[in-house]
């Protein structure tokens, strides 16, 4: 402030014009144009992935490979339980803490139910079959989570368990590039593969 020369060169008078027009830069260029450009590039380069990895069957959309859907019939492998009832519009986890008695109760009941359903010991129930995922839409099981269901599915379909286990193995994805993530089975793909075999 003592030296007038450099301060004069500074532009400290900020009117309303600059902030008002700056909004246009932010919302139109950084927001709208960027979103449209990213969407167009994705859409052109990867059309199937860009539209939700949909699975069609007889000309109808039966689901997305990336969204779990409920299965109740014994002929089908069953996905993980969902806090959102498998509705993507209501996607949510249970948000129950490990110290919450309600969570303990719910998991104990689920263990008993899975053990009875698949005829296995309660201690052999894989943990993802009795816990709810983060968004309630987890489309995968671990290979163990599918294996415990093989006997039940084979019986209901009148198939040799070895053949059902083969279908599970074929649907198992290994860790990506050999090092990322866990081995996993996509439940919807597996069930559709079994249906296709028996048509």
């Amino acid at each position: 402030m003592n030296d007038p020369m450099p301060t004069q060169a500074l532009q400290d008078r900020i009117g309303l014009r600059a902030p008002l027009l700056f909004v246009v830069v932010i919302l139109v260029v950084f927001g709208l144009l960027y979103s449209l450009a990213g969407t167009a590039m994705g859409r052109v380069l990867f059309p199937a992935q860009a539209t939700g990895s949909l699975i069609e069957h007889d000309g109808r959309v039966v689901g997305s490979a990336l969204v779990a859907q409920p299965f109740a019939d014994a002929r089908y492998f069953q996905p993980r339980p969902s806090a959102a009832n498998y509705d993507p519009m209501a996607a949510a986890g249970s948000n129950l803490a490990r110290s919450n008695p309600d969570l303990r109760k719910r998991v104990d009941a689920a263990i008993a139910a899975v053990a009875a359903r698949d005829g296995i010991a309660p201690s052999a129930v894989p943990m993802e079959l009795v816990t709810q995922s983060g968004g309630g839409l987890d489309p995968h099981l671990t290979p163990a989570g599918a294996r415990v269901q093989v006997a039940r599915v084979a019986k209901a379909r009148g198939l040799d368990p070895a053949i059902v286990q083969q279908a599970v193995d074929a649907a198992t994805e290994t860790p990506q590039f050999g090092l990322m993530g866990q081995p996993r089975v996509n439940v919807l793909h597996l069930n559709l593969a079994l249906d296709a075999r028996q048509r």
């Binding site: 969407t39 992935q49 249906d195």
Partner: peptide
């Protein structure tokens, strides 16, 4: 991210018919 399956489209979301109708959805 789109190459891995993250959607990028301006269309509204489709309505799917789940495979096992006996599950109630």
């Amino acid at each position: 991210l789109t190459s891995q399956g993250v959607p990028s489209t301006l269309q509204g979301g489709p309505i799917a018919t789940p495979v096992d109708a006996s599950a109630g959805m």
